[in-house]
Nucleic acid binder design. Structure first.
Lengths: 367, 367
DNA sequence: TTCCGAATTGAATCTGTTG
DNA sequence: GCAACAGATTCAATTCGGA
């Protein structure tokens, strides 16, 4: 076990190689604001699975997902959660993600240890793997649990208005529709194979960190893998500590995070008060990486320019608000359809942001 | 405790008033096909919970009693689940619905008792109650767990094709979007207040029963409430046994169910899978003269050719065997469905031999 | 270069009957 | 109980290759 990467200064990025329990016990107590944990799911797969076209499904058969029994898994869970609890500030919170194989044990253990559940959140996958044999319902979601350190903890971070802004000025619900991690975001090893079997999408972490941390907070991920938590934390100006046992994952994570740029502080500010109404969640574009925080939008004639912030609000000179509100403001009008007014540059051409919305709609299928 | 309503004949509708554990223990073992359970999680409303030693549990909403209350709840859960397990047929299954307050304990207990999870299913509420104080995500879903009696249980009911038909010919996913129970469906008492605080929508039970029971099966609901399970079971031609402690809920349930009419048998038929159809050996086609010995079969691209022999085996170059074996062999695969792979020429066109099988099935159906 | 069809792939507790 | 074998079974998104 050893510290791999540590940077002093305004942004701490720490990756520790080793067992997560030992590593957490070596950290100062009550030192982190949020823990995001993606522990092994304890899948119990039978023989090989083939698709109808007889191709083979690449199973998660790694050693780190092998447990002898529920009892052994529960003990593992209690141990890492106790270590996590120690390093968590009293005002801190924890997120754990899992599937039906493990999430009920995870949830019960959280409660047993005194964590207090705020929500269970369902990640609905827009493109899950089908059930090839027609034996069950398509396993189309995973479950996240968000819990504070204790029941009597009244202070915790929840950026309610930022979530609302991200969701078209409707309260963010407990079910989130997001695609799984594929395409360019999916990290590959030298052979072109996936670098990690269970890489999570950045959009998921974006929402988690935006909702329950503030810029400058420290996020701990005890099952760091290829570093999605670190990548999004850096992008959003949060400090992070990642712990990972496998050197090969750390290597990938370091290179990945090296290339990430932190958004400018003014872009990372999130809405703290009510804003004008919007119809389509513009924030989804940022969450999904179609626009970066800090991206510049202009009108077709380039008379006005605005900067995009992480929660989907935009800034033009002194004014902050939705794409519609700011669009109306700069034109001196009462109303404006921001989707067609604001443009972004791609391939040297200005295009309305509405084409990005269409892209998202196409990807997400139903509303 | 007493039996309130029992009807002999083709459709059994039984409502039992009393404690669900005692009542289940009084039923014959291995007698029900499906259990649907909506257990209480608010221990105060659950009322009359007792510890194993029969001592009364007092108010459990104080922080100091959180751990004690989880233990008591787990004990309660183990007790009713064990009783449920006893009355369940070996081919039977159980559904349990809950929210984050109790579902993790319920799920872990199911696993501890040997039930085998098939899916966790998310009921997404299209019209959830908002979070008025803006302190959390809108609690917009509940979780259902579908589990069979044991891991090595190979036979269970899942009407895959019926679910697929219900979902526009796409596999039914594990997330279901349904409205909460309101309007005319919501039962009221004499004062116009809701008769039961957590009445479930019939649409939810409709999907559960259609997916995992057949007409004529017996469904048990140990927390019957105002009888949604019974109402839908009757509508769909399933027998049911409902157990409920409170007389006032039973009264409402009886009147409700009395008004329900069972659908006509032909309307209750659902789309079935090919697996359920009669098996036709390939040799039958030759026997019946639909293919002559010596007939030539090819794949759609005409890359491979095989000759049919009198006993239903086929020959391709040196290899002899079943249509499936040879189909797999020539493609270099482990398996192949010979019915759809091999084609024969008729009217100058290539057609899969599967249409001949369909012809035989149609003829057998008439006979 | 662009467009269209084919191929690939993702945290999966993934068959049933006969001999 | 195990081996052999029949034969049923997939959605969304991206990438690749040929026209």
């Amino acid at each position: 076990m050893g510290r791999v990467n540590s940077k002093a200064g305004q942004s701490a990025e720490i990756i520790i190689q080793g067992d997560c329990i030992e590593a957490m016990n070596a950290l100062p107590e009550k030192s982190v604001d949020l823990i995001f944990a993606d522990p092994p799911y304890n899948l119990q797969l039978g023989g090989g699975l083939t698709r109808p076209d007889q191709s083979k499904v690449d199973a998660v058969d790694d050693d780190w997902d092998k447990f002898a029994s529920f009892q052994v898994y529960d003990e593992f869970t209690r141990n890492w959660m106790n270590a996590a609890r120690r390093v968590l500030k009293d005002t801190g919170a924890i997120w754990v993600i899992g599937s039906y194989h493990n999430i009920f044990r995870v949830g019960a253990t959280l409660q047993d240890l005194g964590f207090w559940m705020m929500n269970d959140v369902v990640w609905r996958k827009s493109n899950p793997m089908p059930n090839f044999r027609g034996t069950r319902f398509t396993n189309a979601h995973e479950t996240l649990i968000w819990a504070t350190k204790s029941a009597d903890q009244k202070k915790y971070t929840f950026n309610y208005d930022a979530m609302k802004a991200l969701n078209d000025d409707l309260q963010m619900r407990s079910d989130w529709l997001l695609p799984i991690c594929t395409g360019g975001e999916r990290l590959k090893d030298g052979d072109g194979d996936k670098a990690h079997p269970t890489q999570k999408p950045e959009a998921l972490l974006h929402r988690v960190l935006l909702a329950t941390t503030n810029a400058g907070d420290t996020v701990l991920d005890p099952f760091f893998g290829t570093g999605t938590t670190g990548a999004v934390a850096k992008k959003l100006g949060r400090n992070f500590v990642g712990i990972e046992r496998e050197e090969r994952y750390i290597k990938v994570a370091r290179e990945r995070i090296r290339l990430i740029k932190t958004g400018a502080p003014e872009d990372l500010k999130v809405t703290t008060s009510k804003k004008a109404e919007v119809r389509i969640p513009f924030g989804t574009l940022i969450e999904r990486g179609l626009l970066e925080p800090g991206a510049v939008l202009t009108d077709p004639a380039k008379r006005h320019a605005a900067r995009v912030r992480a929660d989907g609000s935009i800034v033009c000179r002194d004014a902050t608000g939705s794409i519609h509100k700011i669009g109306a403001h700069v034109q001196g009008l009462d109303a404006c359809n921001g989707w067609t007014f604001w443009h972004f540059k791609t391939d040297g051409k200005l295009k309305p942001i509405d084409i990005l919305r269409q892209k998202v709609r196409a990807e997400m299928g139903e509303a």
